[in-house]
Design a protein around this nucleic acid. Structure first.
Lengths: 156, 156
DNA sequence: GACATGGGTGTTACTTTATAACACCCTGTC
DNA sequence: GACAGGGTGTTATAAAGTAACACCCATGTC
């Protein structure tokens, strides 16, 4: 992720794609859900449910309840618009909603960025390993902690 | 995991291996830590920190503090004797402590069992994917949710 | 043996993350 | 307009994890 990229544009893109996908599927991307999606995208980093909750409360001018956010997030995850990063208890906008993919992440310990990758090799290796053991895969989770390229080059 | 296997023996084995490994490394496997390791192994399933805490409290006859368990678990994870399953917030005994491995799990949604695998193909695919993006891997996490062989054959 | 050192443990309080139960209210349909 | 069903609000609560600080005890040193 470049520090210079047009982030506003990138949020707008995500919302547009979400509108299209939900319309196509007959899923209801309500005002609340759309706003939560926008807040998830407000940085490219994984954000906790309670961080989103705070933003939402601020926008509304009054305290929102945790459930409000969790329910919206649940919908967004179901629709594949948002991924949950298990090892961070946090949520991040999906880079390629609509495409079939499993959600693999390279999570940088230094800058907190979580780069979504969809490496066919990793997916295939998991499928093969599972098949060899008679295990039926439903939802693979791959979260690799480490250091991203830019943090290796510019250590703090 | 067979329902018939000699689980007592299997716990004893884990403790013996832990003793040997810690002695070799000069790590202090104190009575408390050893007891927590035993409780982690008390089933083959992932167990939450608070479940272990309850067992411990019962053994002691008085309520133990969460930190007591968390500190012991931290030690055990550092020593590679126990793995944390991120997507379950739970801990499970390591099947092959001492060996270099990353901790890959096939987690059954039906029976709750978490089979540890160490598939070289999966590890290699992750390394390759990361290397291609200039990412330095520190700790890969692979947790595949699905149905284990036995639960596919005997659905409930 | 006295002493200092450092890791391990106990205790209290607290934060963060997530869910349950139930009522109400829109929205689309007939 | 009546109905059905999903979406939202509200209150309370559960589950998971951490901070700060004091004490204890094994170990090594003199």
């Amino acid at each position: 992720m470049s520090a210079l990229h047009d982030h506003t544009h990138c949020i707008a893109d995500a919302l547009t794609r979400a509108d299209a996908l939900c319309a196509e599927r007959g899923a209801r991307l309500t005002a609340l859900r759309r706003r939560v999606l926008e807040l998830v995208w407000s940085s490219h980093r994984p954000r906790g449910a309670y961080a989103i909750l705070e933003d939402l409360s601020q926008q509304e001018g009054k305290a929102a309840a945790p459930l409000t956010v969790y329910r919206a997030l649940e919908f967004l995850v179901e629709q594949g618009l948002v991924h949950r990063i298990e090892s961070l208890n946090a949520y991040v906008g999906c880079a390629a909603p609509g495409d079939v993919h499993s959600g693999q992440f390279l999570v940088c310990e230094a800058c907190g960025d979580a780069a979504e990758i969809d490496d066919p090799g990793v997916g295939a290796a998991i499928d093969a390993a599972a098949a060899g053991r008679g295990f039926r895969v439903q939802r693979p989770t791959v979260e690799v902690r480490g250091l991203c390229k830019s943090c290796q080059e510019n250590p703090r």
